[in-house]
Simulated scan of single mutants.
Amino acid sequence: MKFLDLFAGIGVFHSGMEKAGHECVGYVEIDKFARASYQAIYKTEGLYTTNDIRTVRASELPRSDVWCFGFPCQDISVAGKQKGFAGARSSLFFATTRLIRDLGEEDRPSYLVIENVKNLLSINGGFDFLKLQIELDEIGYDCEWDVLDTAEVLPQHRERVYIVGHLRGRGTRKIFPIIRNREQVDNGPNTVNTITARYGEAQGTGAYIAESKPPKIVVNPHGFNKGGVKDISPTITAGSFKDNTFVASCLTPNRNSALIREATEKGYKEANVGDSINISQPNSKTRRGRIGAQKANTLTAGEVQATLTKEMRIRKLTPLECWRLQGFTDDQFYKAAEVCSNSQLYKQAGNSVSVPVVYEIAKKLGFKE
């Protein structure tokens, strides 16, 4: 099947769809750095492309069977201002449906594959998600949706809602729920082989030692605290620990871990070797959920993901590791690294969708019931 890649970013839908045997006929992306990575990774010669979806005319788009788009989530994400569809970015969903309205029914794609943050289901009391369903209904699409977690195929906890629109009258097959076969997906120890979640359909994340009077353990950048106990030596910027309370070592003959401050009843959570640690806002008194047990927390556009190493050091994840956590190949990363800075590579990974999840959806497209 032929597909159009809208809000294309660095091409997650391109990777997942192509891996499943589908053919890209065009892409739209406004960010110049994401476009540079996209063009470095994929064979884009001869494909339709433009920058801004708001200026696209339906008549210029190549005909395709599937439109894929993860429209901007900044107005919907819990980390944003919660404007929902009233925000300038997330309302671009309607710029996409406008294009479909301008197409004759025979030229409309059979499928719409849409991705966004899970909060889309509940923002503004659920009314925005209702608006989305009504809009799809008005342009002729029934829809189904599922909340899928990347942690079920890769070691990153990342819940996203995936919506599939079916053009009425085309006899398209329902996609959800997705039940994976039991084949090995990855050789890593943190992979499971099922994707199951809630699904629906619609018609029409400093520390203190755990004692009764906990003494404050401070991080010393030189490697030892006042009591002579060897501390964790952060490999991230020392300024992030200016109050010396974010992290403390807890090393005994029977224990090898770090206590990370969190706004919980205990006031901390224990991180073991191999756990991820979110290092954003290290001095926050309200932050919780910093620790990922043997998997990364949800990647974001910033450089905030770290891990606890065997040497008891907190080390930031590299851009390559972040791209791997989204399912990109090393070859794809190195092509993008030739045209983008590390800060852009971190941002691109954090803004991305997860390739293996798209692949699972893409495998089920194009079959008749």
Rank of each mutant, 00 (worst) to 15 (best):
E23A: 13
Y27S: 11
S37K: 04
Q39P: 04
E45Q: 14
R54F: 04
V56Y: 03
A58G: 10
V66M: 13
V78I: 13
A86T: 13
A95N: 15
V113N: 03
L121A: 06
G126M: 07
D128E: 07
F129Q: 03
Y141C: 07
E144S: 11
W145H: 12
D146N: 13
H157G: 13
I163V: 15
G165A: 13
R170H: 02
F176S: 01
N187Q: 13
P189V: 12
N190I: 09
V192T: 15
T196V: 13
Y199M: 08
Y208R: 15
A210Q: 10
P214E: 04
G228L: 09
D231V: 12
D231W: 00
G239Y: 04
A263Y: 02
Y268H: 15
E270G: 05
D275N: 15
R287C: 14
T298M: 14
G302V: 08
Q305R: 11
Q305E: 15
A306W: 02
I314N: 05
K316I: 09
E321W: 03
C322V: 02
Q326W: 05
Q326I: 05
Y334W: 15
K335T: 01
L345E: 00
L345K: 00
K347G: 11
Q348D: 06
G350S: 11
S352F: 04
S352W: 01
V357R: 07
K364F: 00
F367M: 06
